[in-house]
Design a protein around this nucleic acid. Structure first.
Lengths: 348, 348
DNA sequence: CCCGCCCATGGAAGCGCTCCCACACCCGGC
DNA sequence: GCCGGGTGTGGGAGCGCTTCCATGGGCGGG
C-alpha cells in the first residue's frame, strides 16, 4: 500500500519477512524453523506450533530463489510447445491438454512455465533454458518430425514426458499416447461395415506421429477389406485444412462414399464442403472424425468419431514427469498407451 | 550426453559451470566476470573478450536462482487467467492474446508463467504467489466482476497490466482495452442504416466489462434511432451460448430482422440457429458479430463484424507491464484504448 | 612535474535458505 | 550407575551470484 522510503518497498522492517525473523519470533533457531516449515521432521510439537504461529503472524512465505539456490529445485515445470502458432492454442486438443496438466500440477503446488518456440534460433535458446535447470522438468506437446527436441532432452537427463509419441528417441523418453494405428483402423472399419466401398481419408500432417499412425491404420484396414487406398489427402488438423482437403478430394474422387478424417476439426471442415457440394451426410458420404473434444457434437449432423482421452493423457504424462522429478528412474522411458474408442453419432 | 558418475549429473568437475570457473578461466575476478556478462560496464575490452571466450568454452549460463536472490528479479512474468475453464483456452481471443504477449516477452528473454485459478481457495494461493515476488509482474486477462484481483494487485504494488478494463480499481492499474461502447454502437448502427427496425442483441456475460459496454453501446445507438431496446439476451461468449441465446430470442421476438452479437463465436452459433429456423441471413435477419478473429471468415455467409486488435492490445499491455518492471511509474495507471472498426462482409 | 580524477579491477559482504554436523538431553538396559 | 542410542536443537557453512568499496594505474591540466 504505502511505499516505504528506503531501499525496500514492502511493509515491515525491511521487505518481506525472512526465515530469520520467523525463527526469532518463534524463539527457535533458523534451522529449526526451516525444518518446521518443511514438513516438520525432528521438530517438537511445541517448536512446531511456535513456528506455525510466527509464520502466520508475519505472513511469511519462503523466498523461492533462496530455496531454489540450495535445493536445486525450482518447483516449476515447463510446457514446451514447439509450434507456437496461434492455431495450436485455439485447438481444443491443446485446451484439454492444458486442463489435464494444470490439474495435476495444482495438487503439488507446482507452477507451469510456457515455453513456446518457433523453429530455429529460438529452439537453441530454449535448450539453454532447459539445460540450465530453470525448471524441474519438461512436458512436450505437439512434437514434429523436425524437432530434435526429444534427442536433446534425452541427452540432457532432465525429467521430461511427451504427450504423443516423439519421432526420435521414443525408446529413451517417457510418453503417453493413444493407439493411433488402432484408431485409424476403427475409423475405416466403421465405414466399411456400414457398406461404404469408396473410402477416402483426410490424413494429418505427415510430420506428426498421430497423423502418420492414423493414416497407416486406415490403410491397413482398407487393405484387409480389399479396398483401394489411393484416396488420401493431407490436412493440417485445422478446420480450414479440412475444407481444402475435402475440396481436393471431391475433385479427384467424386465417387467417394465415405471419408475418415484424422481430426474432428478437419471433419467439420470437410462436412461443410460436402454439404455445400450438395451431398448428404451420411446419406451420400459417411464421415468419421477423430478426437471427440466437443467439436464433434457441435456439427450438424453430429460427428461419428474416435474418442481420444486427451485430458487423461495429459494428466498421466504429468504424473510420469512428477515421478521422474521425484527421482523414480523406472519411468524414465515408460510409455502409456490409451485405447481409442469409436463414438457413434450421426455422420456415419 | 555421457552420464557422469558421481553426485552431479552434468559434465565438468562438479555440475554446470559457475561464474567462478568462468572467472578463473578468463583470468579475471568473479566481479569482473559478472560485470562482463551483465552488459560489460566498466570492463576493458580485453577482459570482456576473455570472459566471453570463457563463457563460450564452458557453456556457462548464469544460475537464475542465485541471480534472482540478489537482484530480486525473476525475469518471468505471470499470465493470470481467473477462469481456467478450458473454454478460455479454445477461444481464439485467448490464443491471440497469448501470441501478442509471447512476442513481446521473447524480445526481452522473459518467461511466461501461467497462473490459472478457479475461484475460491486457489485465488488466495495465487495472491500469496504474487505477493512473494515469484514473478516480476502480472498480466491479467478475462477479468470478472467477482474477482477482487485488481484491488489486490493495486494494493500489492506489483507491476501489472490488464487486458480489458478491470471492474474495480480501474483508475489504479494499467490496462489496455478497446472502446467497447463505440463498438456496440457501430454494430447497432450498421443494422439501423441497413434498414433493420427490429434489432436484437446477444450480449456478453454481464460480469465482464466487454459484455456490459457493448450492450450499453447497442442500447444508446438504438435509443438515438428511436428503436426498442427490449430484445436482449445474454450469452457466455461461446458458440453454444450463442445458439441458446438465438433460440430464446427467436421464441420471444420472432419478428427480429437484425441481431448484434457480442462475439463472433456467439454470432456463429446464432447464425446456425437462424438458418435452421428457415430464415435467410442477411435476407430475413441481418447479423453482426464482434472480434473478427478468424471465426467470422469461416461462417457461411461470412460475418460482418467489429474488429478488435487483440494481438496488438496484448502486446501493448505487455509493454506497459515491462515499463513498470523497468521502474517507469508513469504508466502505473495508464490506459490505452484501441478503436474498434466495422468490417463489412456478408451477414449484414 | 605533480596532483587529482576517472576508470578498470578484485576483495568481500551479503541475498535467504537448507542441511550437515556437533551437541545436549533423556530414556532404557545391563 | 553407566553407557548406548535416539531425538530435538542450534551453529555454521555454503548454494552462485551481484555489488559496494577500496585500490591502483593511467591520464590530462595546472
Amino acid at each position: 500500500m504505502a511505499r516505504v522510503e528506503g531501499t525496500r518497498s514492502l511493509a515491515g522492517p525491511g521487505g518481506s519477512p525472512t526465515l530469520d525473523e520467523v525463527a526469532r519470533l518463534a524463539g527457535v533457531s533458523r534451522a529449526t524453523a526451516s525444518r518446521a516449515i518443511n514438513g516438520g521432521n525432528r521438530v517438537s510439537s511445541q517448536a512446531q506450533t511456535a513456528v506455525d504461529d510466527a509464520v502466520r503472524a508475519l505472513g511469511y512465505t519462503p523466498n523461492p530463489a533462496a530455496r531454489s539456490l540450495v535445493t536445486r529445485r525450482t518447483d516449476s515445470v515447463g510446457l514446451v510447445v514447439p509450434e507456437p502458432d496461434e492455431r495450436v492454442f485455439s485447438d481444443p486438443f491443446f485446451a484439454r491438454t492444458l486442463k489435464g496438466v494444470t490439474r495435476v500440477l495444482a495438487e503439488r503446488d507446482l507452477q507451469l512455465v510456457l515455453l513456446l518456440t518457433r523453429p530455429g534460433e529460438e529452439e537453441a535458446r530454449m535448450l539453454r533454458y532447459l539445460r540450465n535447470r530453470h525448471i524441474d522438468g519438461a512436458l512436450v506437446v505437439s512434437h514434429h518430425r523436425s524437432d530434435s527436441l526429444a534427442d536433446h532432452l534425452a541427452a540432457l537427463d532432465l525429467p521430461c514426458a511427451f504427450v504423443g509419441r516423439p519421432w526420435t528417441s521414443a525408446d529413451k523418453v517417457a510418453y503417453v499416447d493413444t493407439d493411433n494405428l488402432a484408431g485409424g483402423r476403427q475409423g475405416a472399419s466403421a465405414l466399411i461395415e456400414r457398406g461404404c466401398r469408396r473410402i477416402a481419408t483426410i490424413a494429418g500432417p505427415d510430420d506428426m506421429s498421430a497423423g502418420v499412425d492414423r493414416l497407416e491404420g486406415w490403410r491397413s484396414a482398407m487393405r484387409e477389406a480389399g479396398l483401394e487406398t489411393d484416396a488420401v489427402v493431407h490436412g493440417d488438423f485445422t478446420e480450414r485444412g479440412g475444407e481444402i482437403a475435402a475440396a481436393t478430394l471431391l475433385e479427384r474422387h467424386p465417387d467417394v462414399d465415405g471419408i475418415v478424417a484424422a481430426s474432428d476439426l478437419m471433419a467439420a471442415g470437410a462436412l461443410r464442403v460436402l454439404l455445400a457440394s450438395g451431398r448428404s451426410v451420411p446419406g451420400d458420404v459417411a464421415l468419421v472424425g477423430y478426437d471427440d473434444l466437443g467439436v464433434a457434437e457441435r456439427t450438424l449432423p453430429q460427428l461419428t468419431t474416435i474418442r481420444n482421452p486427451i485430458s487423461e493423457m495429459a494428466e498421466q504424462a504429468t504424473r510420469l514427469l512428477l515421478q521422474q522429478i521425484d527421482g523414480d528412474s523406472s519411468v524414465r522411458a515408460m510409455r502409456v498407451i490409451y485405447p481409442p474408442t469409436l463414438v457413434h453419432r450421426d455422420s456415419a
